[in-house]
Amino acid sequence: MTLKEEGPSGFQQLLGYELSEWAEGQAVLELMVEHKHTNRAGVLHGGVLATLIDTACGFSATYCPFPGRVRRVVTLSLTTNFTGQVRHGRLRAVARKTAGGSRIVFCHADVLDEGGKLVASGEGTFRYRSGSEHSEGVAL
């Protein structure tokens, strides 16, 4: 399953992030920072960073190599740490699945600016939706 088969979500279209890498246990999202992503101080809004962490982590837990099938999770908890500021440029949210069982999984993500500086990190706990706990997922 590739994201092209599923199509972008409305929220993905709104923010403009792209899934640039996806494999079992890992995912990378990219976002070009635009004015619409900034807060009143002109820096990237923390909510955008939290979204990138949540979404990249979710993708890292839901890779499905079977065409026409999909895996999904729901977020149970999300912890974010903001370590820098960004005004422009391309961000990369690099996530990996770190542990888990048959229904609950744990993931970590780092968000890096285009110079490779860490601007945020976080951990998430996710629960697989019915059928998604298996690598073959469910029909799209």
Rank of each mutant, 00 (worst) to 15 (best):
M1I: 05
E6T: 00
E6G: 00
G7A: 03
S9E: 12
F11S: 03
F11N: 06
F11K: 08
F11Y: 15
Q12K: 09
Q12F: 06
Q12H: 04
Q12C: 03
Q13W: 14
L14A: 12
L14H: 15
L15W: 10
G16V: 07
Y17C: 02
E18T: 04
L19G: 00
E24Q: 10
G25C: 07
V28T: 13
V28Y: 11
L31T: 04
M32G: 08
V33L: 01
N39S: 08
R40T: 10
G42Y: 12
V43T: 15
L44V: 09
L44I: 08
L44R: 11
H45L: 05
G46N: 10
G46H: 09
G47M: 09
V48F: 01
L49V: 08
T51D: 02
L52N: 01
I53G: 03
I53Q: 10
I53L: 15
T55K: 05
T55V: 12
A56G: 07
A56T: 10
C57V: 10
G58A: 13
G58C: 06
S60V: 04
A61V: 05
Y63V: 00
C64G: 03
P65N: 15
P65L: 10
P65Y: 14
F66H: 14
P67T: 04
P67M: 05
V70G: 01
R72W: 13
V73I: 15
V73A: 07
V74M: 15
L76W: 07
S77T: 12
N81P: 00
N81I: 00
G84L: 04
Q85F: 07
V86A: 01
L91G: 03
R92H: 09
R92C: 01
R92T: 02
R92Q: 12
A95K: 08
R96T: 06
K97Y: 03
A99E: 12
A99P: 00
G100C: 06
G101C: 05
R103P: 02
I104P: 00
I104W: 11
I104R: 09
I104A: 06
C107F: 06
C107R: 09
H108E: 12
D110T: 05
D113E: 09
E114P: 00
E114H: 02
G115A: 12
K117S: 02
L118D: 07
A120H: 08
A120D: 04
G122W: 13
E123M: 07
E123R: 11
R127K: 14
R129A: 10
S130H: 11
G131V: 11
G131N: 12
G131K: 09
G131F: 13
E133Q: 14
S135L: 13
E136T: 04
E136D: 13
E136W: 14
E136F: 07
G137E: 12
V138F: 13
V138M: 14
A139E: 15
A139L: 14
L140C: 05
